[in-house]
Design a protein around this nucleic acid. Sequence first.
DNA 1: CACTTGACCTGTCCGC
DNA 2: TGCGGACAGGTCAAGT
Length: 293
Amino acid sequence: MPELPEVETVRRGLERLIINKIVKAEQHDWPKGFPNAENDVAVFLKGATITDVRRRAKVLMIDLSTDYSLVVHLKMTGQLVYVNPKDHERFGAGHPNDSLINQLPDKSTRVTLSFTDGSALYFNDQRKFGWMRLMPTIEIPNIDFMQKVGPEPLSDEFTPQEFIQRIGRRKNSVIKAALLDQTVLAGIGNIYADESLWGAKIHPSTLVKNVSDTKLATLFHEIQYVLALSIEKGGSTDRNYVNAEGKRGSYIDFARVFRREGQPCPRCGTIIIKTRVAGRGTHICEKCQKVVE
DNA sequence: CACTTGACCTGTCCGC
DNA sequence: TGCGGACAGGTCAAGT
């Protein structure tokens, strides 16, 4: 589900909502998604204060005063939703969180983190692809994924030149597969791959080696544009995604091709089609986006 | 090494 | 309304 803008939106919400909360209890019924030894939870999680909420690629890190962190990947359908019943007392029915108080936990709740003030953070995941780990903060950079993951697309240090060089390692791949490769750059998923390729007028099936450096530089800027715009809109809710307060994102209303099959291309009016590229559902304007041989 | 495909899960939607 | 199959925003492992 969530790509960089969605995970960043969750991070910003959690940063506002859970820093300085003290963990009172933790509950999970899902060893595969949260495989830590019970005594780690007892010693390093219960009683700990949340000190920071960080993101790298699509991974969230909730840092604790014990120098341990909860590391979370939401994968396709994961959600981290914070509920404070005191909002209900204070604001009554009609408060945005009001319905959540009655809805959570539910049957896809995998982990519940209760805080000493009576509020709670729920990790929900319908498809169970997501995971949560409790580990020493200092060891996070050593996990395999962190070792291999590419640069943050919105960081100041990431330049078009570096993008062209890194994606060049996948010269014989179709460009959509290369964009989805997290070792090339971090955070792109199916939505923003389609959106940025349309922006740069590149057909997703074009081999990387057949895309000019000029086009790749344009693609780099399109990636930054769609990701930044989506963060501003609170991410995309295609099906399940919600932010830390259980609210949907609105980027999908601004999408140019994603989930717009059958509708006119906003640039040329040609009907957008949905096809399959790199094993993923793929949205294109066949007039704007031509395969270069 | 580079690249593609299938597996991991549950739920929903679409055609018969 | 029921049932089978395809599909869903991500990543790995295993295959070529």
